[in-house]
Amino acid sequence: MMKIKDEDKKRVGNYVKFSGIAIQMGVLITLAALGGNWLDEKQKNEFPIWTLVLTLVAIFGSLYQIIREVIKMGKDEDDSKG
């Protein structure tokens, strides 16, 4: 039988984790844009302010989540080495 190294398991786990975050990011940004578009149509805005604001909030929130996960992953890696 072929043994899988712990390092390879971590890589696959990180790949799965960040793939999931990417999917969440896409869904969140899409929902924010659709919700903003709906609000803009409801208020009959000439400039799509709600679409812009909600989409930007979703993007920054998603980036914050990614940065937080990368920092956590770095700390976990340092703890396992030390």
Score class of each variant (00 low, 15 high):
residue 68 R to Q: 13
residue 33 A to C: 08
residue 47 F to S: 08
residue 21 I to E: 00
residue 76 D to F: 02
residue 56 L to P: 05
residue 28 L to V: 03
residue 70 V to H: 03
residue 57 V to C: 11
residue 42 K to F: 14
residue 23 I to V: 09
residue 16 V to H: 02
residue 16 V to I: 14
residue 49 I to S: 08
residue 65 Q to M: 13
residue 22 A to N: 02
residue 73 M to R: 03
residue 4 I to D: 12
residue 69 E to G: 05
residue 32 A to I: 03
residue 46 E to C: 05
residue 35 G to F: 02
residue 74 G to M: 11
residue 68 R to W: 07
residue 59 I to W: 05
residue 8 D to V: 12
residue 40 D to S: 06
residue 8 D to N: 10
residue 72 K to W: 04
residue 7 E to M: 10
residue 3 K to R: 10
residue 8 D to R: 13
residue 62 S to W: 02
residue 20 G to S: 06
residue 73 M to K: 04
residue 19 S to L: 11
residue 48 P to L: 09
residue 37 N to Y: 12
residue 43 Q to I: 07
residue 28 L to G: 00
residue 20 G to M: 04
residue 24 Q to I: 02
residue 23 I to S: 03
residue 3 K to N: 09
residue 77 E to A: 14
residue 2 M to L: 15
residue 60 F to W: 14
residue 46 E to R: 07
residue 50 W to Q: 02
residue 59 I to K: 03
residue 46 E to D: 13
residue 46 E to A: 11
residue 48 P to H: 08
residue 16 V to D: 05
residue 40 D to W: 01
residue 81 K to S: 10
residue 38 W to S: 09
residue 7 E to C: 05
residue 51 T to K: 04
residue 5 K to T: 15
residue 18 F to Y: 09
residue 72 K to H: 10
residue 28 L to T: 06
residue 78 D to T: 13
residue 17 K to V: 01
residue 14 N to Y: 04
residue 6 D to A: 13
residue 36 G to I: 01
residue 56 L to V: 15
residue 5 K to F: 14
residue 3 K to A: 12
residue 55 T to S: 07
residue 41 E to Y: 11
residue 16 V to L: 09
residue 62 S to E: 00
residue 56 L to I: 15
residue 76 D to V: 02
residue 16 V to Y: 04
residue 41 E to F: 09
residue 36 G to Q: 01
residue 68 R to Y: 09
residue 38 W to K: 13
residue 55 T to V: 07
residue 73 M to C: 05
residue 17 K to D: 00
residue 22 A to Y: 01
residue 31 L to D: 03
residue 75 K to G: 03
residue 19 S to K: 08
residue 27 V to Q: 01
residue 74 G to R: 10
residue 25 M to N: 02
residue 5 K to Y: 14
residue 32 A to T: 03
residue 62 S to H: 01
residue 5 K to L: 15
residue 54 L to N: 03
residue 68 R to P: 01
residue 71 I to L: 02
residue 23 I to E: 01
residue 1 M to R: 10
residue 13 G to D: 14
residue 52 L to I: 14
residue 11 R to K: 15
residue 45 N to K: 03
residue 10 K to A: 12
residue 80 S to R: 12
residue 35 G to D: 04
residue 10 K to M: 15
residue 60 F to C: 13
residue 14 N to A: 07
residue 18 F to L: 06
residue 57 V to Q: 06
residue 47 F to R: 08
residue 55 T to H: 02
residue 79 D to V: 06
residue 41 E to N: 15
residue 45 N to P: 03
residue 4 I to M: 12
residue 47 F to Y: 09
residue 52 L to E: 14
residue 57 V to G: 08
residue 74 G to W: 07
residue 81 K to H: 12
residue 12 V to C: 04
residue 24 Q to G: 05
residue 9 K to C: 11
